[in-house]
Computed example of a mutant assay.
Amino acid sequence: MRKLIVGVIAGALLISTGACSAADSPDAQAAAQAFVTAAATGASVEACALLAPRARDGLGPAGCPPMLATVPRAPVVSASVWGGEAQARSDADTLFLHQFPEGWRITGAGCHPRNEQVYDCTVGGR
């Protein structure tokens, strides 16, 4: 089931472009790449640990491992950070992240824009 990410990222960009730390963007990009790599290699424990709690809980009774087959395997090429939110891009999809005390976690993966402010995601996205 596809889920939606409403344009919070776009609003955050307009409001808080100065809130991005130079160190945050590489950290968010590294977390997104770690998730994609873990999913691509079938390392379900590692990939599932990188999901935000709400994204993990939203996977339903089947849980996290079956979701890994739906995650595009393209390398992450960039990340943009706005405060505690981030967007990472590959040539195949977009990932959304949130910064928790323990680090960046995936809130949406396999996301594709429906319009300028809404994305459909195969994982998370709420």
Score class of each variant (00 low, 15 high):
A109S: 15
R73E: 12
G103T: 03
P101G: 07
P65V: 00
R89A: 14
Q99S: 09
C64V: 00
S90C: 10
P72I: 00
G58Y: 03
P61V: 03
T94K: 07
L68M: 03
A109K: 07
P66A: 04
P66C: 06
L59D: 02
V71L: 00
A109R: 08
I106N: 11
A69I: 04
H98T: 15
D57R: 14
Q99H: 12
A88N: 10
A55C: 07
G58H: 03
E102F: 06
L97H: 00
Q87L: 13
A79S: 15
Q99V: 04
P101T: 07
D91A: 15
A69N: 02
R54A: 15
S78A: 15
A109Q: 04
G58E: 11
F96L: 12
R54V: 01
S80K: 14
M67C: 04
P75M: 07
G108K: 05
T94M: 00
A69T: 11
A62V: 12
I106R: 08
A62T: 10
A55Y: 06
W82G: 01
P75G: 13
C111Q: 09
L59F: 02
A88R: 11
V71Q: 04
D91Q: 08
R105I: 05
Q87W: 04
S90L: 02
G60V: 08
L95I: 04
Q87S: 11
F96I: 04
G58K: 05
G60A: 01
P53Y: 04
H98M: 12
S80V: 15
V77I: 15
F100S: 13
R54Y: 04
C111R: 13
L68I: 09
G110E: 00
A79W: 09
W82E: 11
V81H: 10
S80H: 11
A74K: 01
V71E: 09
A74L: 07
G58L: 05
D57C: 07
A88Q: 11
A62Y: 06
D91E: 13
P75N: 13
G60P: 03
A55W: 04
D93S: 14
G84R: 07
A92T: 08
